[in-house]
Design a protein around this nucleic acid. Structure first.
Lengths: 136, 136
DNA sequence: ATATTTGCAAATAATTTGCAGTCGA
DNA sequence: TCGACTGCAAATTATTTGCAAATAT
């Protein structure tokens, strides 16, 4: 909580309750939640919270590079407090998302010569060990 | 045109005019178009075409692995007749999409042990050589 | 007091669905 | 003729926006 506050203050973003709680949620549950998941979890604690505020907070966090918006080929975005370069694997059976320690710096293609690369995204989809064992 | 027909027939999909034209468009203009782009280009030629039919055709093509749905962190999907494993780079200035010859088989992470991987997606975003030269 | 944040409701946009009409073997 | 294909309109879903009320320093 205190850490969230100082993280926000260090980026010159006012640590409002909503922002602290959203950031805290992302930190405590780094499961790459969707806006809906964040909203519903926090709604109990903050009954006045609106989804718009969750969107607003995440927008600010993205701008100051505190969270990363990720997109696993679904219709909705997910959010990750781990802004370091890594990939994701999504299990299409149980929905679990696994972080992949992929060094994207190595993933270079000749076609990228002269390009300024701002973001690198890697995600795989399939069945996680548990789900592929259960033969689904 | 004839090739499109036989491609479809070999997969037991009826080669209707709409399907042939959509597939032909994707083949002739492998620019990773969106549904909207496909629809508007073909609407001149086939005035009765509806966007639903474009969606329907693409859905069938995906199922028979004739096209690949790609998603570059935008709000809409794109479609690629090149179903071989490769990555993409999108220029955030001019919108151009460059195919990347990345061997994703190499991109392995220890966390993937035991996973059944069905799809591998890699995309980068930034500025292409032309746009980064113009210092935008 | 004043600027920022919040939250409702409406707008936007991509995609999906229901269903009736049409087309082709 | 019959089943598959098409296409309109409506539904669904995620996200954004306008603006007024609430809040904080």
């Amino acid at each position: 909580m205190k850490e969230m506050t100082s993280q926000l203050e260090s980026k010159n973003v006012k640590p409002s309750i909503a922002r602290i709680k959203v950031l805290e949620y992302l930190t405590q549950y780094p499961t790459h939640p969707t806006v809906d998941e964040i909203y519903h979890h926090l709604a109990d604690e903050i009954p006045t919270l609106s989804k718009t505020t969750v969107y607003n907070s995440l927008k600010v966090f993205k701008e100051i590079d505190l969270v990363r918006e990720i997109n696993l080929g679904e219709h909705q975005n997910r959010y990750d407090v781990d802004v370091s370069e890594h990939g994701h694997f999504k299990c299409d059976h149980c929905g679990r998302i696994i972080d992949l320690s992929i060094n994207l710096q190595n993933v270079d293609a000749k076609e990228l010569e002269g390009c300024r690369i701002d973001h690198r995204h890697v995600y795989f989809r399939g069945f996680c060990p548990l789900c592929s064992a259960s033969k689904q």
